[in-house]
């Protein structure tokens, strides 16, 4: 009983973090067709911005939306500076890998310069711990487990039930046709980056509340998000969301029975096996498109 509960909480918690990171990556891939290797530093920068705002003793319920808004702006700028000028190039996927990696290293060093190397910690979303059926969990983790599905559900509704969301899903599928119905393609590209960065920032705030922050804290979550989208398939955002929780549970089970040390190796083994059997991803269709 204890084991099952611990795995359940661990899986939901990790899955939430993975999902929050992965949807942004998937959103950018499905709208623009590039991989954003700055996604990890967007998470990290989000955590630092939130830390700075908290240090000015702004209350958390303002820090949260303010950070997401600021980071949405940063995401927009990132897109305008290192992605938009390259759109239309035949080798755009590779070039953007390089430009976003460059931007990532720039941001990383900038953060180091501004906030220094000393590790910091964010306040938790909700303080304290609680017992659920005899298992101790922090309120911070419970908050993350509960907030994430709400945010992801809102994103899903936005993409599937609003005309702007429809435009975001359409723009990747046919640029000329998008232009001919009057979509503002560059603005939609900016919007995809803005949403992705805001969600990454939220993940950063989640993480900064239970772990020490550092300028490189985004590297591992970026890798995990990449794994999640490859695993879940890139044809939709629901695929990566399911995959995120699946991997969360897989990790929780592995680390419970085999220990943290073996978890990454086992995860990669499963990933490679799955890619051999179903290269388009677990829930993926063979094309790009968002739903």
């Amino acid at each position: 009983m204890d084991a099952a509960l611990q795995i359940l909480f661990g899986g939901l918690f990790q899955g939430s973090l993975f999902a929050m990171m992965a949807v942004g990556l998937a959103l950018i891939w499905t709208t623009i067709g590039v991989f954003n290797f700055s996604h990890g530093v967007m998470m990290m920068l989000g955590a630092y911005v939130a830390w700075q705002l908290s240090a000015w003793s702004i209350p958390l319920f303002i820090v949260l939306p303010a950070t997401m808004l600021i980071m949405a702006g940063v995401g927009w700028l990132l897109q305008a500076s290192v992605v938009r000028p390259l759109i239309g190039r035949p080798n755009i996927v590779l070039v953007v890998v390089i430009t976003t990696l460059a931007a990532a290293s720039l941001v990383e060093n900038g953060v180091l310069e501004i906030w220094g190397p000393r590790s910091k910690q964010l306040p938790t979303l909700i303080e304290g711990n609680t017992q659920i059926l005899g298992v101790g969990v922090s309120m911070h983790q419970i908050a993350i487990i509960l907030i994430t599905p709400v945010i992801l559900g809102a994103l899903w509704l936005f993409l599937n039930r609003t005309r702007l969301g429809l435009a975001l899903r359409a723009v990747a599928q046919n640029e000329d046709a998008s232009l001919l119905v009057g979509l503002n393609v560059t603005a939609l590209y900016g919007l995809a980056f803005a949403i992705a960065a805001a969600l990454a920032a939220l993940a950063g705030i989640f993480m900064g509340g239970y772990r020490f922050m550092s300028p490189v804290m985004g590297a591992d979550p970026l890798l995990k998000a990449l794994i999640v989208v490859v695993f879940g398939g890139l044809s939709s955002i629901s695929g990566p969301i399911f995959a995120a929780y699946l991997i969360g549970f897989f990790e929780a089970i592995c680390s419970y029975y085999f220990g943290l040390y073996w978890t990454p190796a086992l995860l990669f083994a499963v990933l490679i096996l799955m890619l051999m059997i179903k290269p388009e991803g677990l829930f993926g269709a063979k094309t790009r498109g968002l739903a």
């Binding site: 429809l166 899903r169 599928q173 046919n174 046709a177 001919l180 119905v181 979509l183």
Partner: peptide, 29 residues
């Protein structure tokens, strides 16, 4: 297109992963 000069292009692939209803909704953007 905002002025009402509308173009249905040659061999249009349209939006492969949208439904007909979604395509028409985009037309009214």
């Amino acid at each position: 297109v905002g002025l009402g000069l509308v173009h249905s292009s040659q061999g249009n692939r349209l939006f492969p992963d949208l439904t007909i209803g979604e395509c028409l909704a985009l037309g009214a953007y």
